[in-house]
Amino acid sequence: MIEVVVEFIIMGGHAYYIWPAYIIATVGILGLWFFSIRELKYQKQILANLKEDISQKTQQRKCN
C-alpha cells in the first residue's frame, strides 16, 4: 500500500514541478477567496460604525 502512495507522491520523478504547481493554484484561489471575504467583513464593520455615530450625531442635534 505504501509504495502506491510513495509512487503517487514522486509523480514519475517530476514531483518538484507538479506539486508546486498545484500548491500555487490552490494558494492563489483560496487567497483570492479569503481576502475578498475578509474585506467584505471589514467594510461591513466600517458601515456599521459609521451608521452608529451618525445616529448619535442626529440624537445630539435633536436634543440641543
Binding site: 477567496w33 474585506e39 467594510q43 459609521l50 451618525i54
Partner: peptide, 24 residues
C-alpha cells in the same frame, strides 16, 4: 463567487464614501 463578493465590497465602499460626503 469572488466577483460577486468583490462587487459587494465595492458597493459598500461606495456607500460609505457617499455617506461621508453627503453626511448621514
Amino acid at each position: 463567487c469572488v466577483l460577486v463578493t468583490r462587487i459587494k465590497v465595492l458597493l459598500l465602499k461606495r456607500r460609505i464614501r457617499l455617506m461621508r460626503i453627503n453626511g448621514g
